[in-house]
Design a protein around this nucleic acid. Sequence first.
DNA 1: AGGGCTCGTTCACCGCTCGTTCACAACCGT
DNA 2: ACGGTTGTGAACGAGCGGTGAACGAGCCCT
Lengths: 119, 119
Amino acid sequence: MEAAQTDDVLYAGELEIRPGDGLVLAAGRALPLSVREFGLLVALVRRSGRIVSRSELYTLVWASELRDGDRSIDVYVHKLRVKLETALPAWAFIHTHVGFGYRFSPEASHVFHNSTTPR
Amino acid sequence: MEAAQTDDVLYAGELEIRPGDGLVLAAGRALPLSVREFGLLVALVRRSGRIVSRSELYTLVWASELRDGDRSIDVYVHKLRVKLETALPAWAFIHTHVGFGYRFSPEASHVFHNSTTPR
DNA sequence: AGGGCTCGTTCACCGCTCGTTCACAACCGT
DNA sequence: ACGGTTGTGAACGAGCGGTGAACGAGCCCT
């Protein structure tokens, strides 16, 4: 993997990531991630703003060739999204580019549900 | 295709295009394009200012011979125009040259709608 | 050792996007 | 006005990506 990039700290909106420590803070609170989730997040954040192909992500995080038909990346992007969305509902971080890959970029999510008041 | 021209960056007015990443920024914001749309845009921009025939565009983007009666190019030019116009209403990028093909060139569009006030 | 976790992987299902084609309207040059 | 060219909306099938669930391997605890 690539986490061995010493102990810099990455910031992205309300997120703070410490690759060296395997630690993610969301708005100051620790966000528990599994090894794969963490690796994927770091890989994406290190390439913020750019589109990263599944194949590249797999190489970076899984350290091997993406076999075709393998959906691991999709599944883990989903898991990451759920956790990030739970921690920071007002932000969208991981964006899909159909046919290309995923792009990390903190953007305000278009949420204006009053749904929490179902009458 | 030709996108494999490494990681140069193309600029055209408010547009920034990264052929290597499959990414287009319109006034700084990511503009999501399909694979075909993206390929077509890159091909046109790489030939900015010149008229490009449908046949040449097809060869560049679809990597095969344009069969006659095939309207794919027209359809995709339209899709591209819609997306570009939505993102940057003040600019016209793709110009038709009847009988010859299309020409890419960022030009101010003549827009002066007050339409948003339908009374 | 056994039971209850979490984790990573895989599968199945399904909605949605993409690329292609068609039909018709609008437009162009002559 | 005419024939050819281009614009545009819609329909279609194929494939991509989102998502819930099942499964087995490793862990920790007692």
